[in-house]
């Protein structure tokens, strides 16, 4: 029985590693609206988006620097589910991306873009911070790790004062 259970668990883990996580808009809203003590960073990007790809290393660095803090980075890929195998996976492997990559397939963008931030026109890159129901959004790219850190600091300072 125990053997069967471990076999079952291992196969789940293998499946999870093999298949890229794809989420819809309810799951994304669930992550954004979590009320725990973790600050969440959602970077919306795609492999075809040049400025997105350029800023990824900065986000990776922010993630590495804050590894032990209660902070979580999600690289939300807007690559189409069909291009996961052909483009996204090789990209993640070649660039050695360490942060969590989640593919988002939200249906009609006119619905989900407004749910994420009403000021967002839909261009990427775009980044959302969320912490205990509060949010902070930017629809443009970052040019350095420091810029992202400042963006996060501004957000934290705002509800400290």
């Amino acid at each position: 029985m125990r053997l069967l259970l471990s076999f079952f668990l291992i196969s789940i883990i293998c499946l999870k590693v093999q298949s890229q996580n794809i989420i819809g808009r309810d799951e994304l809203q669930y992550l954004i609206n979590k009320q725990d003590d973790t600050l969440r960073i959602f970077n919306f990007w795609a492999t075809w988006c040049k400025p997105c790809v350029q800023e990824l290393p900065y986000f990776e660095q922010v993630n590495a620097q804050n590894f032990n803090k209660k902070q979580k980075l999600y690289l939300i890929s807007l690559d189409f589910p069909e291009s996961i195998k052909r483009k996204l996976k090789p990209f993640i492997k070649n660039k050695g991306i360490q942060s969590e990559v989640i593919v988002f397939d939200g249906g009609n963008p006119n619905v989900w873009i407004n749910q994420i931030d009403s000021s967002w026109s839909g261009s990427i890159p775009a980044t959302l911070l969320s912490f205990q129901g509060r949010k902070h959004f930017q629809e443009s790219s970052f040019d350095s790790t420091e810029q992202i850190q400042d963006f996060i600091k501004n957000f934290i300072n705002r509800f400290k004062s």
């Binding site: 807007l78 963008p109 006119n110 967002w120 990427i124 629809e139």
Partner: peptide, 13 residues
């Protein structure tokens, strides 16, 4: 109606 909609796209460079 609607007179404004959102879509994903590339930022203007």
């Amino acid at each position: 109606n609607p007179n404004t909609t959102k879509a994903v796209g590339c930022s203007i460079k």
